[in-house]
Design a protein around this nucleic acid. Sequence first.
DNA 1: ATAGTCAGTTCCTTTTTGGAACCTGTCAAG
DNA 2: CTTGACAGGTTCCAAAAAGGAACTGACTAT
Lengths: 167, 167
Amino acid sequence: MRWEELDQEPCSVARALAVVGDRWTLIILRDCFLGVRRFDQFESRLGITRHVLTDRLKKLVENDVLTKVPYQEKPLREEYRLTEKGLALHPVIMSLVHWGNTYMTDERGVPLVHIHKTCGHRMAPVTTCSKCGEEVTARDVRVEVGPNWGRTARDLIPNRASGQQTK
Amino acid sequence: MRWEELDQEPCSVARALAVVGDRWTLIILRDCFLGVRRFDQFESRLGITRHVLTDRLKKLVENDVLTKVPYQEKPLREEYRLTEKGLALHPVIMSLVHWGNTYMTDERGVPLVHIHKTCGHRMAPVTTCSKCGEEVTARDVRVEVGPNWGRTARDLIPNRASGQQTK
DNA sequence: ATAGTCAGTTCCTTTTTGGAACCTGTCAAG
DNA sequence: CTTGACAGGTTCCAAAAAGGAACTGACTAT
């Protein structure tokens, strides 16, 4: 499989990564969530080459993660803003931050902290079950093939003949 | 900035992405969470080139996301298993799946579903606040510079002089 | 008239992938 | 005891992507 075919894979991770899975895209989105909107702001904060930045922003717009909205005419200048689809990536960024905070900090500690506006406290994201509301970890979930995928894609899940689970 | 310097950035997203942020790593990890452990299984399921697979697995081991454990000697064969650090990436994968399920499915619907073992239901991951337990969305969080980063890194957060937020 | 800003393009070099073939150690069959 | 298979790589080369720097175009400010 080559990278460009990834969005046709019968797997939501693969399809999501077809959009946000390259080296720079999620860092660009991190900056979007911090309020960055303009080409030159991205460039100077990220140290990314203009060429790559142009390309990534274009792809994010094509995939409806960002939109271009004009903030002046004469000359026309547009800024990039998160769409609802883009905002929906927030949990992904939050979990990455949390993982980085937990496992990758140096002696100076956590660079940025999240404050929950509603309750006013410093917070960490906790992943919970939409049904019962309890916290969910890797060991608490099982994966099944979706209802319409019966025989076409049983091999989405590797066989577990050898008996063990992700442990 | 070039890619290899990313792990020194004062940002947990950047540091996390220095480990898992390339085109293939998160897909490899998806398979790990599904129970895949061996080189040739990864290769045939992913269609990745052996060269890249070797490299990514090695980096994941170096970063303590996976460990190699022998499953036979003569000849020595090892399989790759998630460490605790690796298991801690589960929320990232879950959120990606959820986002892909929400925005990237085709007419056949969701390929894989998560079942919460504890309550037995099909579930979606919900991100909540570790302090108050309520659901958290992009609009509910504010970011602040960490306690030890005062003046060295105020520019971690772009100035919001122009007034608006990620909206 | 000169300099500066923003959002790109163009051109060229260096890295990273993709693809296929080859290597190494061990067993198993004929 | 030669041939094949298997697992897990490594080597080689061409193609694609990224890095770096300079250039463009439509303005605006001095």
